[in-house]
Amino acid sequence: MTPPAPDPVRLVAWVHGHVQGVGFRWWTRSRALELGLVGYAANKPDGRVHVVAEGPRRACLQLVELLRGGDGPGTVELVVDSWDRARGDLTGFRER
């Protein structure tokens, strides 16, 4: 899905694959902070990692490409992303 034009945006990504117990949330947090984003990365009981990030559209696009890129820990099989206007309700970037 193409992100909306206005900045800032909210990226919601569901990362599928072997992404728990391998440092994936820490790696995602590090990349998001480097890009100046706020949000979180959370393990889910079904083995996915749920990533929510807000900030400039370009930075969120970079983050989703990094999630898909295969350079992080573990094995990413699929990233399902959706986009919306930022809500402004997040601070910092946390691992949940």
Rank of each mutant, 00 (worst) to 15 (best):
D7A: 12
V64C: 02
G55I: 03
R25P: 11
D7N: 15
V52D: 00
D71I: 09
L61I: 12
R10N: 04
A59Q: 14
Y40W: 14
A41Q: 07
V52Q: 05
L67D: 02
G39F: 01
W26D: 13
G39A: 03
T91A: 14
L90F: 15
L33N: 08
L78Q: 15
V12P: 00
V52R: 03
W27N: 02
L66A: 14
R68K: 14
T28W: 03
V79Q: 05
W26I: 03
G17E: 07
V12Q: 13
L37E: 07
P45S: 11
W83V: 08
P56T: 10
L66C: 00
A13T: 03
R57Y: 06
P73K: 03
A32T: 04
V19F: 08
L11T: 10
A13F: 02
R48E: 10
Q62E: 15
L90D: 06
F93Y: 13
V52K: 01
W14R: 15
V38F: 04
S30N: 12
A53E: 04
Q62M: 08
V76I: 07
L35K: 07
E65F: 00
P4E: 11
V76G: 06
A42F: 01
Q20T: 10
H18I: 12
V19I: 11
A41H: 06
G17A: 11
G39Q: 01
P4Y: 09
G92S: 10
V9W: 04
W14E: 14
R85H: 12
G74D: 03
R85F: 02
D84P: 00
L33Q: 15
R29E: 12
P73W: 02
P45N: 06
E77V: 09
E95S: 13
A42T: 13
V12G: 10
G55N: 04
A32N: 03
L33K: 14
V79A: 07
Q20S: 12
H16K: 10
G74W: 02
W83N: 09
W27Y: 13
G70S: 07
E65W: 02
Q62A: 15
P8F: 09
T75Y: 02
D81Y: 00
N43H: 11
D46K: 06
H50K: 08
S82F: 00
D7M: 08
L35E: 08
G36E: 11
G92E: 09
V51R: 05
L35D: 08
R29M: 12
R31E: 13
T28L: 04
W27V: 01
L37Y: 06
A86I: 10
W83I: 08
A13H: 03
D71Y: 05
D84C: 00
R29S: 12
R25M: 12
R96W: 11
V51Y: 05
H18Q: 14
V52H: 01
P3N: 10
G88T: 10
V19A: 10
